[in-house]
């Protein structure tokens, strides 16, 4: 493949990854790393460097639009970022001390359970309001957005905040320990524990993943894993794709987004279990 064709193909792939990431609240690493390494034969280090760039690009590209339409909730995002960033710092410090494979296996099993739990609520467009959570009231973890599909304002308030916060702490810890992004876990914690509308969950996750990834981006840069000729087409493609993804999100139902999220969750569960058992390495 000629250098120009290589850059063009990487750009096109990144537009798709950015679009999917913006819709599903993921950084795109889960989609991008396998494609870059398996299809384009990119060295794993550079693929991971490009992936961290893609997470921040998705976040900046999507969150700018989601903040304008109030789909991203800054208060919920920052409140939970306390847990993920602290968890990531502790996780990075513990890396090499804690048995990684056992962790991956436990995480895989937890994700498999979450996949089944998400499957059960697949048809729920908006969660039923229940008794107000005192922490949600204290910290104003609520909001309102205009839902173009339902053609009305949707008001929501976070539920089971303590569980959500604990799950985020765990997500941050694992991302620090295992060097994985944790967009999927953030969406899961907001959708499953805190019962936020799915669109708010993925849009707020988009805002948060940029913050969590910025913490480790410096390490990748200093290591020389961010190659400009690979990372730049990825970043530009992802920014363009993420901006397009935000336009699509407005036209989709919460249930549609959850259905698209489910295979990603299942794939993560299987890959974590296989890694935990030592059957798969990438």
């Amino acid at each position: 493949m000629s250098p120009l064709a290589f850059v063009a193909a990487i750009f096109a792939t990144s537009v798709l990854a950015g679009g999917a990431g913006a819709l599903l609240g993921l950084g795109g690493g889960i989609l991008l790393i396998p494609v870059l390494t398996l299809v384009f034969g990119v060295d794993l280090h550079y693929a991971m460097g490009a992936s961290i760039v893609s997470v921040i690009a998705t976040s900046s590209g999507a969150a700018a639009a989601y903040l304008k339409t109030s789909l991203s909730n800054v208060r919920i995002g920052l409140f939970l970022a306390l847990a993920t960033v602290a968890g990531a710092l502790v996780g990075a410090a513990l890396a090499g001390v804690v048995p990684t494979r056992l962790l991956q296996l436990l995480l895989g099993v937890a994700l498999a359970y979450s996949t089944v739990a998400t499957l059960r609520q697949i048809r729920i467009e908006l969660p039923e309001p229940t008794e107000a959570d005192p922490l949600a009231l204290r910290f104003g973890l609520e909001g309102v957005y205009y839902d173009a599909v339902l053609d009305r304002d949707v008001k929501y308030r976070a539920m089971r905040v303590a569980q959500g916060f604990a799950a985020m702490l765990g997500a941050g810890l694992l991302s620090g320990l295992l060097g994985i992004g944790s967009g999927a876990f953030k969406v899961l914690a907001m959708d499953h524990f805190m019962r936020l509308p799915m669109k708010v969950s993925t849009a707020t996750s988009n805002f948060m993943i940029g913050i969590t990834s910025a913490a480790s981006a410096g390490i990748y840069f200093a290591r020389g894993d961010i190659h400009p000729l690979l990372a730049a087409p990825v970043a530009i493609g992802v920014l363009v794709g993420a901006a397009a993804g935000t336009r699509l999100m407005a036209r989709l139902r919460n249930t549609t987004i959850r259905k698209a999220f489910l295979p990603i969750l299942g794939w993560l569960a299987v890959s974590m279990i296989l890694r935990g058992l030592g059957l798969w390495l990438p």
Binding site: S60, A65, K68, A232, I236
Partner: peptide, 25 residues
């Protein structure tokens, strides 16, 4: 107001980055 302020920063950051990366390439 806070949302819009943060949104603007993210958008400007993204646009400046794209402009520089594209110019370099």
């Amino acid at each position: 107001t806070v949302d819009r302020r943060i949104g603007r920063i993210l958008m400007v950051g993204g646009l400046v980055s794209i402009a520089l990366m594209l110019a370099g390439l």
